[in-house]
Design a protein around this nucleic acid. Structure first.
Lengths: 236, 236
DNA sequence: GGGTTACAGATTGTTGACAATCTACAAAGA
DNA sequence: TCTTTGTAGATTGTCAACAATCTGTAACCC
């Protein structure tokens, strides 16, 4: 699910492994893992020192991360982990919902038996995590479920666009996470309905359900947020 | 409509103008203008010499362009203007159609009188260009019409995603342009219908029309292409 | 004391040089 | 003649030093 996949073929590995890509991957990992929090300043020389490379590859990685929306660069000031305001998060949720609509339509038209079984397997895991009220187990399964769904469209452009949005939303959640106590999703039934619609090849219903699901996921987060107050200060 | 807007405020201009951004903008311009054709190799030192900068900023610009999908970098081999295959173009068209659906729904719900007048003004220009069968005048107006439409959603995430796709499609058209003789679009009536639906606030119809329009635009291009044979060879 | 200016340290922007890799061509062998 | 191997030139990857800019502090003036 990483934006920069690791090749398993050793020759392809050597061909693609420049220091820049290594730095890029490591920084992306730290940001998405929350080791670098939104708003944090990232020091070029520190990163270079930690990874034992010079500043050149680090700067190149910064440019790539900026294009993918994970950091913000200010000339002569430095680079900062991007902060996503509530308004921006709303926008991102809205676009993601639009893409999910498309995902439902495309997947319903082409999904195969084994793929359906795979989704149902993921569903099972989510349900047992939900019963145990184990958020730490549920959350990554949820991500995986939706990511796999997008992959099943077979549309790589769509996959790339979708993942970019998910990453940005991840940033938003990271930013507000500390203040949201226990926003456990109650969406397992919705997921089951989605899979059922896909199984019937009912693309209208699948796309409608996926769109709804995305918007409700936004509402759930907002509701949880409203209980605890606004997120941290935003950049201008 | 540029991906990297030029600030008009002189202080903001100085604040944001690093050599990297200048190189980035110039390369993007050359690619979209067709001065650098899909598949062309871009030599670091040449670019650096032409723009009178060192290779550092050029390499940083390359990384940014790679993330935005305009070039492809191969380790120790160089950077190449990205080639978009027919299959990829299909995928991109499909995603763009999905976004257009969303655009229609959002714009219909919030468009104002002056904005409608602005769209109708653009329409007028397109119609007169169509009557004169002046493709060179029509094409940029068409781009502007759709770009403005997306802007009117007020959703900057959507605007960014949309423009990225349009840029990539531009690459595809550049690649096949030489072989497509006179694919003059017959879409002025569709545009008028879209604006009418927006004026009525009919979001269902607007989104349906915009979606259709995007898919038909794909079909038109493919049909024109089929008359002249397949595009140039693709990268593996 | 409040505010402004000057300076020092730290950080980023840019550059040119060196090392590693690739490409093309030519020489040697079968 | 065809293939292989070796070498030279070109190109990319990486690095370390220098220049420009910013941030914070302290001295200075009113």
């Amino acid at each position: 699910m990483a934006s920069v996949p690791v090749p398993t073929d050793p020759i392809a590995l050597l061909r693609s492994h420049s220091l820049t890509t290594l730095v890029h991957r490591e920084l992306e990992r730290r940001i998405l893992a929350g080791e670098l929090a939104p708003g944090d300043k990232i020091n070029e020389e520190d990163i270079a020192g930690q990874l034992s490379v010079s500043r050149g590859p680090v700067r190149e990685a910064f440019r790539a991360l900026e294009s993918s929306g994970l950091v913000r660069m200010e000339k002569n000031r430095g680079v900062f982990v991007r902060q996503v305001s509530i308004a921006e998060a709303d926008e991102i949720y809205e676009v993601r919902a639009g893409l999910d609509h498309l995902v439902g339509r495309l997947v319903a038209a082409r999904i195969t038996g084994p793929e359906l079984a795979e989704l149902r397997e993921l569903l099972k895991g989510m349900q047992s995590a939900a019963r145990a009220r184990d958020v730490d187990a549920y959350y990554p399964l949820n991500l995986r479920f939706h990511d796999r769904l997008v992959e099943l469209t077979g549309n790589r452009t769509l996959v790339a666009a979708y993942r970019r949005l998910v990453n940005e939303l991840h940033l938003y959640r990271r930013q507000t996470l500390a203040r949201v106590p226990d926003s456990f999703p109650v969406s397992t039934r919705e997921h089951a309905q989605i899979v059922d619609a896909l199984a019937r090849g009912d693309s209208d219903r699948a796309s409608a359900l996926l769109h709804e699901h995305a918007m409700e996921s936004r509402d759930r987060w907002h509701a949880a947020l409203a209980e605890t107050g606004s997120p941290r200060r935003q950049a201008p």
